[in-house]
Amino acid sequence: MSAAPLGSTFDPHSPEALAISTLFGQTLAVCAVIGAVVAGLVATCVVRFRSGKRPEVPVQMQGNRSLEIAWTLVPLAIVVGLFVLTAGAMAASDPPATRAPDIVVVGHQWWWEARYASGAVTANEIHVPVGKDLLVRVESTDVIHDFWVPQLGRKVDAVPGHPYSISLQADAPGTYLGACAEYCGAEHAWMRIVVVAQPQADFDAWEDRQRRPAALPSPANAEATRGEAEFRAKTCITCHAIGGEGPPAQVAPDLTHLAERTTLGAGVLANDPAKLSRWLHDPQGVKPGSHMPDLHLSDREVSDLTAYLETLQ
């Protein structure tokens, strides 16, 4: 992934992220002033009160009550101000969930499942229409994960048994990168998130495609046709759903439209045929500890399956 965006907390692309970065800027400014005051005082002491130019026994001051009161009350006032700003930013950056979610995001070890209210199901790469305020409910089926896309807003833990809904709204088209932000085991590092914001029309087209079942490969494509048969014969279908066929609960990422996605393995590889073959050949080598077993596929099986999966637009 070469020209990746600078996914910074200070590069907000949603009203919620903007509320947070504003608060962050204000708080940092206050902290900078306090830090400068403290550093300045310490530096002054270092320069002005070095023993060389001072009396051997300086004035033995015990304390000063007025100063104590001042440097208790002034920070208290700052804290009260900060508290008020915080309360406001909380409301702006995390609006309450008042309706059914538009997208349900489920954390698994180590990939993200995304189910749209419209019925579309995908994994790891989430598309959203630009400018629309979506409600995303975040859950988990195993351990605690965390859904975080810094440019779009707050992070929220995916706690098994404790779902929580956040607002997701991208105000400009583009690709926004995120990551799982709660240590969840071996491959926590490779549980990355891609959010693609598209104009409404493009998003609608994408969602329509996602809801359509996978087309069988054309018989002219012999490799892909063999691959489709091998996908069932090698038991891939028992974990990975394709076009509505497959396990009732999501055990592994839905692959119905795998070929469209930008990454594989929740971000560990870019999505191109060569890398897909590498993944099929040696999943434990690419992402050790992940739940995809090494099926000891032969080279021909790998190329057949790659050809088939590449047809899943």
Partner: peptide, 23 residues
């Protein structure tokens, strides 16, 4: 310690924590 304490204050403001906790 003051630098660490000030970054701690930023965490106390919960929305900031919502961005930078676990990072």
């Amino acid at each position: 310690f003051v630098v660490g304490g000030l970054s701690g204050i930023t965490f106390a403001a919960a929305p900031i924590d919502w961005q930078v906790t676990d990072t």
